[in-house]
Amino acid sequence: MRPPMSTTEKNPNATLSVSILSGKGGVGKTNLALNLGFALFRAGHRLLVMDFDVGLANIDVLLGLSPEKNLQDLFRPGVVAEDVVLSIEPGGFDFLPAASGVPELLEMDEDMREALFGKLNDVFSTYDYLFLDHGAGISPNVLSAASMSRMPILVVTPEPTSLTDGYAVIKVLSAQYKVKNFHILVNQISNTREAETTFERLASACERFLGLSLSFLGGVHTDPAVPEAVRRQIPLMKFAPKCQASQDILNVAVKIHRHRQKLGHKLKNGPILKNIQERAT
């Protein structure tokens, strides 16, 4: 691991940055980010969910919030991170909203991202987890941003098209951004066996064609409580904590927590988000 560029890039709290990704839209990525976050918060961790689907942001809708300020405002002089961060639950479950329908945010280049994260780093370091909810697809902007995190989670569904799109994300990220440590979450399964076969199919393709081994985070069942929670604009974990999907999400959250524990003090040695030198191929 590269030494930190400056003292501001140190990570004293061992904040784990987690990217939630998908190749295809509509696989439940945003909902999973929110509820995995909620589960970790309930387990006593401070967590910030950052809506990085800049241009097509949606977490605020899932929460029934209407933020006054968003990421874009941080480019204005005088606006600090604290002005933008919203509380989802008191005690350390917070949310950093992005702007919808702002195409220029999608075209953020390295300089703009550096400037943005420069402003955010001190805030990031007060949390145990930083969740980045990215847009779907393989546009260079999504992937370049996703490659900054320490733990990339790829959400797929058992649908074959979701599998090929997810595979494409892995292939591009590994070839162009040196990302190798993918964690796979299979959403919208009808039984546990389906999650396993979906993962195995993807994992053996990656093993065979890319020489990559994937980690399995588990599956989340299709559950009628999910659309209901979305309609009511309440996190599923809060609305129906006992339902099957909530139980599945809890299991995944435990695995994420174990991953952070395993990384341990290694996290403290580098910046929360990888810098460009660490990612350039």
Partner: peptide, 17 residues
């Protein structure tokens, strides 16, 4: 053709195993 291109053989494998 780039190293990131998803080839027909890879798609077939993903679909059929």
């Amino acid at each position: 053709a780039e190293k990131t291109l998803v080839g027909a053989d890879e798609k077939k494998f993903l679909f059929t195993g």
